[in-house]
Design a protein around this nucleic acid. Sequence first.
DNA 1: AGTTTCTGGTTGCAACTTGAAACCTAGACT
DNA 2: AGTCTAGGTTTCAAGTTGCAACCAGAAACT
Lengths: 158, 158
Amino acid sequence: MGELREPLRELTACGLPEALEVMGERWSFMILRASFNSVYHFEDFLSELGIARNILSNRLAKLVEHGILDRLPCAEDRRRVEYRLTEKGMDLLPAMIALRQWGQKYGVEVPENPVLVDDRDRLPIGPVSILSHDGRALGPRDLNLVDRSRLGMKDDAA
Amino acid sequence: MGELREPLRELTACGLPEALEVMGERWSFMILRASFNSVYHFEDFLSELGIARNILSNRLAKLVEHGILDRLPCAEDRRRVEYRLTEKGMDLLPAMIALRQWGQKYGVEVPENPVLVDDRDRLPIGPVSILSHDGRALGPRDLNLVDRSRLGMKDDAA
DNA sequence: AGTTTCTGGTTGCAACTTGAAACCTAGACT
DNA sequence: AGTCTAGGTTTCAAGTTGCAACCAGAAACT
């Protein structure tokens, strides 16, 4: 498969380009969502998402290759294959939910249906949040980008 | 521009497809990051990202169209244009950071350089978290998908 | 055994998207 | 005027997507 795209330059060092290499592709997040929604089989993804066959095949392979899904041939019916989220895949949940909440907030009024709830009390979850080291929720305005070498310093050199 | 792609079906009602319509495209998140990193001008995005001119032009237009960036012609030099994050764009930060942290966690060892810190104490932020309605941090295993109609009920019908 | 069906693919081909490089235009600069 | 600059468009080759048809191994039926 022609994997000749440049891996999204990173003149700034951070994990985004790496993350986007897989998840930046069309359908990846939708497959992840379906996967989290207990969709495990090829034909089920196919009809759930309305994606083209060859593209689904390609994406599943890529997600497996990147360790986001496991590909498990079923023991009882060896025609079937199960695609299951790995731990690494599960760790994409905050990103997926954050994206979803954003879409919800600004999208057309769609009362989301399968609602994500806290297993403990069955109440809908709150917003995905950026937390400080000690657990305070931070807004965009509370954030700052500083050079590694100046961590902990107030930048008085302004 | 041929906007004929299907808007990513949603047999399940949620904000993801809407969010992916803009942010699912290649470069969108990288542009957002640069934008958050105080990059405002066309030529600066161009050299910062190494993206093709026409694609950058197209993406910026799309981000503006979706209200994620504002396009402000500079008053002093009317050749110049400033692209600035809107409130809606800022609200993508949790998603962007979550993605970034995931890439950081699983990617090759890159000690991220401009580090995101809490403005208050200048210490690096913690992980982006899924919170319960009352602020407890939830892991993937603490989540459940339930039908809108059964909110608050323990599903004893198992 | 022989045929049919089902699952998860692959292949072929047309339409669309991407990227590199050249070109364009309004506004500054001298 | 003549040149430079910022932000785009245009052109064209190459890569990606999607539809539809085909394929192979494993059940299932007869």
